[in-house]
Amino acid sequence: MTAGSARTSASAERLRQWAPLLVLAGLCVLIGFFNTNFYSFGNLVRLLNSAAIPIVLCMGATFIILMGSIDLSVEGVVALCAVIASLLVANDVNQVAIGLAAVPVALALGGAMGFANGWLHIKLKTPSFMTTLGMGFVGLGIATAILAGLTVRISDQTFRYLSLGRVFGIPMAVWIALASFIVAYVIQERTRFGRWIYAIGTDEVTARQAGIPIERTRILAFTLAGVFAGMAGVLAAAQFGQGCALIANGRLFTTVAAIVVGGTALSGGVGSVVNSVIGVLIVVVLANGMVLMGIQPYVQQGVQGLLIIAAVALALDRSRLAVVK
């Protein structure tokens, strides 16, 4: 691909559309070739299980990136919601035990943080990456401060069932991820809000002239991303049986990597939540493959970093960017 990507032919365009799926298929074949255990039912369930939380996170974050913005507060929201949820169910720190009622509380909290992101970003007119960077640290700070750096253990088994329980042999976390995907897909395809997101991402000035309520849509999108991040926090707490600020470590990286690897463009307007699911699967399969091949786990973040660069470089429509800051 050269700088004159405006001349990209239709077939190349189609290839770019299908590239994420081809990459996923290629990876599966390659890893399966080296290690036949890859296709065992046990490993597939393990793959889906480790994809569950990233998928939930990506569902909301995709909308943000579709608008051409970014949400760097993912880790802060996940950490705070996980900590609050684990403090509300039966645990070893306090006497509160409201059971599954903790879930809506965590979702509302995530939504509130997302709303704060969007509201500050819109009202102060600050770029989203700065606003969410600051908010992310606020979230992490609160999560750490509540527990003074300690970890709270969850003893509520019903709550943990949200992640560990199995239906038809498949963990609840996977079903919840599937439900999140359906919700996000319906929002994207079947609501005015979903279409407005695409309009804003494609050309905000025109969208404004067409009468789309930009501010309201943006704030709503950030709120929605917060709710999904809250759900991810609940799932993380349920999965590990504990709440602490460290529970969110590395989540931002995986989320951004998955979304851009799936083919959603950072410049906005191009992509979908379906792409993001494929992107998550690519990232998870790659991580799983590296473990099967005995590569050190600390290399993974480096590989994901390179993956982000490669994917963004391939997906970005540079003709739209006069100045890159």
Partner: peptide
């Protein structure tokens, strides 16, 4: 180089590079 040659916004290119650098630190 990543941000100027590939024309990637710097908040994403440097985020990605931070991951690579972190891995090198561990190494």
């Amino acid at each position: 180089i990543v941000s100027t040659r590939m024309r990637i916004p710097t908040f994403i290119s440097t985020l990605a590079v931070s991951g690579v650098v972190l891995s090198f630190g561990y190494w």
